[in-house]
Simulated assay, not measured.
Amino acid sequence: MGPDPQAFDLEGETLENESYRTVAWSGKYLQVTLMSIPVGGDIGLEQHPETDQFIRLDSGHGRAQMGPSKDQLTFDEPVTDGWCVLVPAGSWHNVTNVGDQPMQLYTVYAPQHHSPGKVHETKDIAAADTDDEPADWSVQPESAPDRHA
């Protein structure tokens, strides 16, 4: 799960993932997670004040929203298989599944945001998890924790 070298079929693993979030690899400065968002579900409105994020859809149809505050999401774009969403640090953002099948995606955080190897079957389980911290060997920003709506 990291930080050792790794190679795997990212698209295949993303498409086969049935969990809300599965941490696929964790490095000192970067983390890859796989996500499956059910019909009508979303990744969750959040903000990473000091880190950028890359999200890529491998299956499904979504609505990507971003903006300077959680009540001002001025960016609103449809996204689908093969599209990516580039989230600048400090942007409030969310991706909602607007299709009729689970939306399969992966996301790259820099630095880590979750415990290496962590699997959350559902969004509710993820929200209730009080033991989902980046590894102590990862490099983290010195201030400004993530915010969730």
Results as ranks from 00 to 15, higher is better:
residue 68 P to D: 15
residue 92 W to F: 11
residue 48 H to D: 11
residue 77 E to P: 00
residue 17 N to C: 15
residue 32 V to A: 12
residue 63 R to G: 02
residue 112 Q to E: 14
residue 56 R to V: 01
residue 100 D to L: 02
residue 54 F to P: 00
residue 49 P to Q: 09
residue 57 L to H: 00
residue 129 D to E: 12
residue 116 P to E: 13
residue 93 H to G: 01
residue 83 W to P: 00
residue 118 K to I: 02
residue 122 T to Q: 07
residue 35 M to F: 12
residue 92 W to Y: 12
residue 33 T to W: 03
residue 118 K to V: 02
residue 126 A to S: 13
residue 110 A to I: 09
residue 79 V to I: 15
residue 69 S to F: 10
residue 74 T to E: 12
residue 108 V to G: 05
residue 91 S to L: 09
residue 26 S to T: 11
residue 37 I to L: 11
residue 135 A to M: 10
residue 76 D to F: 07
residue 76 D to R: 07
residue 57 L to T: 02
residue 131 D to W: 05
residue 46 E to M: 08
residue 78 P to Y: 05
residue 27 G to L: 04
residue 31 Q to F: 07
residue 94 N to M: 01
residue 62 G to V: 00
residue 90 G to L: 05
residue 107 T to M: 14
residue 140 Q to D: 06
residue 27 G to M: 06
residue 87 V to K: 00
residue 52 D to K: 01
residue 95 V to N: 03
residue 98 V to N: 00
residue 134 P to L: 13
residue 79 V to E: 03
residue 35 M to W: 07
residue 41 G to K: 02
residue 70 K to V: 08
residue 33 T to N: 14
residue 64 A to W: 00
residue 72 Q to D: 15
residue 138 S to M: 12
residue 134 P to T: 13
residue 104 Q to D: 09
residue 69 S to M: 09
residue 141 P to N: 10
residue 97 N to E: 08
residue 124 D to G: 06
residue 40 G to K: 09
residue 25 W to G: 02
residue 133 E to I: 06
residue 94 N to G: 04
residue 137 W to V: 12
residue 136 D to M: 13
residue 98 V to E: 07
residue 64 A to T: 01
residue 55 I to N: 02
residue 89 A to N: 06
residue 51 T to N: 12
residue 86 L to E: 09
residue 129 D to R: 06
residue 44 G to K: 01
residue 108 V to L: 15
residue 55 I to S: 05
residue 88 P to Q: 10
residue 16 E to A: 14
residue 40 G to R: 08
residue 69 S to R: 09
residue 50 E to H: 09
residue 74 T to M: 12
residue 137 W to E: 08
residue 97 N to M: 03
residue 34 L to W: 04
residue 132 D to N: 15
residue 49 P to D: 10
residue 100 D to I: 01
residue 15 L to N: 04
residue 103 M to T: 04
residue 131 D to N: 15
residue 96 T to F: 03
residue 89 A to S: 13
residue 101 Q to I: 10
residue 115 S to Y: 07
residue 71 D to Y: 14
residue 60 G to V: 03
residue 120 H to N: 03
residue 18 E to W: 13
residue 38 P to W: 09
residue 60 G to C: 09
residue 93 H to S: 05
residue 82 G to P: 01
residue 103 M to C: 11
residue 40 G to V: 07
residue 125 I to L: 14
residue 141 P to G: 03
residue 48 H to I: 05
residue 106 Y to K: 05
residue 99 G to N: 06
residue 141 P to F: 11
residue 38 P to Y: 10
residue 30 L to W: 06
residue 70 K to A: 06
residue 46 E to N: 10
residue 99 G to S: 07
residue 98 V to W: 00
residue 127 A to R: 12
residue 132 D to A: 09
residue 46 E to Q: 15
residue 119 V to A: 06
residue 97 N to D: 10
residue 51 T to Q: 13
residue 131 D to H: 15
residue 108 V to Q: 09
residue 122 T to I: 04
residue 36 S to Q: 08
residue 80 T to V: 06
residue 141 P to R: 15
residue 110 A to N: 13
residue 47 Q to N: 13
residue 129 D to P: 04
residue 19 S to C: 15
residue 65 Q to I: 11
residue 135 A to Y: 03
residue 84 C to M: 10
residue 48 H to E: 12
residue 44 G to Y: 04
residue 56 R to W: 04
residue 69 S to E: 05
residue 121 E to M: 08
residue 99 G to C: 05
residue 22 T to P: 03
residue 59 S to N: 14
residue 94 N to Y: 00
residue 114 H to L: 11
residue 38 P to D: 15
residue 78 P to A: 03
residue 139 V to A: 14
residue 103 M to V: 08
